[in-house]
Simulated scan of single mutants.
Amino acid sequence: MELKRTKKEIEIVSQTESQRDWDAVKSYFKPDVPVVLHLDGVGILIRDTESEGQVSENGSSFQSDDSDFIVRRYAKGDGTGELVSIMRTELLQTVLDFCVKNGVNVVDLKFAPFPVAAIIPLLASVSSEVITGRWKLLLKDGKLHSFLANSDESRVTYSIEGELVSSSVIALLAACLQFLSGDMDDIPLLGRPREEYTYGYLLKKGGIVVLGVLLLFLTVNYFVWDNLRGRYAGLRMQVANNENYLTELSGLESKLKKKQFFVDKYIGNDVSTRFSFYADRLASTLPGSIRLTKMELQPLMQKPKEGKAILYQEKTISVEGTSRHMTAISQWIKKIRSENWVKEVELVSYSVDEKHHTGNFELEIKF
């Protein structure tokens, strides 16, 4: 952007539809936008002098013996002397005060036309001179040699890597490129603005990085926490279900102990004391069409005789009864055989009572 400052106001030389007044231009200067200035005009002197020592081709800036001036020297391409630009410190302070007042964050500054020397190799179709603002820089063997006034202030357009640049702002472009490459002038008045910009930039970018890391951490933490919460809820549900199962199991074990107690007390675990259990099981399987007339548990093998031991049929039950249907007897025998404690069932006898139309039977059950 090309501006021209008078005593009372700033005139915008490179106007566009969005840059017609200073208030519109100021909107571009955000606090985090670095601004590079190039100054030229009244108050800036340039000289062509003999060389007094080795000077960088791109120039070197330092305070002269008189602190009221800032001097910058550029070596001629043929080594026969140097080109010097001089600016009053008071003028620079006035410019910087104006920039601070209007929120312009100045981080580097060049003055006079000689900074163009740094980009001469980039200019296409340049032979003997380069026009920059109100000056003509004379070249010798493609390097800066001298200068003349551009009396008619004519303007030309140069091509740099395919980009077209007006001669009125080519010195500013050179200043910006030197800033981006790290070649900044050591001007004490710019020390504090540079520090404020640098620290502010680092603080902002660092804050963004820290905030990004924090948000990433919180996001990861949320998903991890949500996953753990889901797993915790699932485990709690499993624990609750297991507690229900344990309660149910405890109740069943209690019932089993009670039943086992009654079995042990009234039936017993020994075979000789389980007769009541066998009798109960036979009665529970008995069909309604059969009537029992006799049941003997471990019946006698013979009638007892005095002086002789009594003999029993061990692990045997003898059953006698009547039924009108032989099929009912057969079905009952099948049911008895299906009992786990029964080893064998035998129909010992069967006879028919013609008078009462019934069948008399006798069963022998081994256990």
Rank of each mutant, 00 (worst) to 15 (best):
V13E: 11
R20E: 12
D21Y: 07
Y28P: 05
K30D: 11
V36W: 02
H38A: 13
L39V: 03
D40P: 01
E50R: 07
V55K: 07
S67A: 13
D68S: 14
F69N: 07
Y74W: 01
T80W: 04
T89P: 06
V95H: 00
L109Y: 08
V116S: 02
A117Y: 07
A117P: 00
I119E: 04
L122G: 03
V130I: 13
K140T: 05
H145R: 07
S146W: 00
N150P: 12
D152K: 12
S154Y: 05
L180V: 10
D186Y: 03
L189C: 06
R194V: 04
L202S: 06
K204W: 04
K204Q: 13
Y222D: 12
V224A: 00
W225L: 15
R231H: 08
M237N: 15
T247I: 09
G251V: 11
K259N: 11
K259Q: 12
Q260K: 09
F262T: 07
F262K: 09
V263Y: 11
D270K: 06
R274C: 02
F277T: 02
T285I: 02
T285F: 06
R291T: 10
T293R: 13
Q302I: 09
K303S: 14
A309R: 13
Y312V: 08
Q313E: 14
T322G: 10
M326K: 05
M326V: 08
I329F: 04
K335D: 10
N340C: 00
E346C: 06
S351V: 01
V352K: 15
H356A: 15
L363I: 07
L363P: 05
K366C: 05
